[in-house]
């Protein structure tokens, strides 16, 4: 499927997502995530958003290691360069979808004559949290695509995401003050979750930022290594 078609479908899915997202006149609700003890609706909504990202990134790696990518690879003369291109494409796609998401949300607020969204400082932190979270999960999908077929890697990534999504809720319920909560990445997208941990907002932000930087760097270096050692068959 070409990117224009994918973008149109993504836009329609985002409209649906934003329509289903509860609105309280604050853009924070877009990043608020699943309330503690929230029902399945919130889980499905959270997963739906990830599925949109995942769908958009589908087959990105395959494009670079098969077909047209081979013509680019022999001209760039570097596997590392191809991975860097892929990574920058990932960041670009995430920013496009996030911008579209905010646009759809504001548009729906305007059409439905809801209260105008208010800006909160938290939003900026949560916005970057969401971006990092998506980078980590989608990088996993891309790296899996370098090893397996696109469909298999899509499936594996969905399973990983869903397990972490539900795992975070269970963990918070039984081990509310444990540092293990930080390992459930999409927790960071759930403002109401991490504020329950017995640390300040600043400390939480610093810890999770550090965690994301470490994870992203590890995945980036792993990806570079996989690409450098990979046979292009």
């Amino acid at each position: 499927m070409d990117k224009i078609k994918q973008l149109v479908i993504t836009f329609l899915m985002l409209i649906v997502y934003c329509y289903l997202t509860p609105k309280n006149g604050s853009i924070t609700t877009l990043y608020g995530g699943i309330p503690v003890g929230g029902n399945l609706y919130f889980f499905l909504l959270n997963y739906f958003l990830f599925a949109i990202f995942s769908f958009f990134i589908f087959e990105s790696t395959q494009k670079y290691i098969n077909g047209y990518g081979i013509f680019q690879l022999v001209r760039h003369q570097s596997r590392k360069k191809i991975f860097q291109l892929l990574f920058s494409e990932l960041i670009k796609y995430i920013l496009i979808i996030e911008s579209l998401k905010i646009f759809c949300y504001l548009l729906l607020n305007f059409i439905q004559r809801k209260q105008l969204p208010m800006y909160h400082l938290d939003v900026l932190v949560l916005f970057f949290g969401t971006i990092f979270c998506m980078i980590v999960f989608l990088l996993i999908q891309m790296l899996l695509e370098a090893k397996y077929s696109s469909k298999i890697s899509l499936l594996y990534t969905q399973v990983i995401y869903i397990l972490i999504l539900f795992g975070s809720d269970i963990c918070l319920k039984y081990f509310p003050n444990s540092v293990i909560n930080y390992l459930f990445l999409n927790n960071y997208m759930m403002m109401r979750h991490y504020t329950l941990l017995n640390t300040s907002f600043l400390v939480n932000t610093l810890i999770v930022t550090l965690l994301f930087v470490l994870l992203t760097s590890t995945l980036y270096l792993t990806g570079k290594h996989i690409f450098e050692e990979k046979d292009i068959l």
Binding site: D2, N66, G67, Y68, I70, F71, V74, L233
Partner: peptide, 10 residues
């Protein structure tokens, strides 16, 4: 190169 499994942008 022309090698199998390659194609140009459709």
């Amino acid at each position: 190169v022309i090698i199998e499994n390659t194609n140009l942008l459709p």
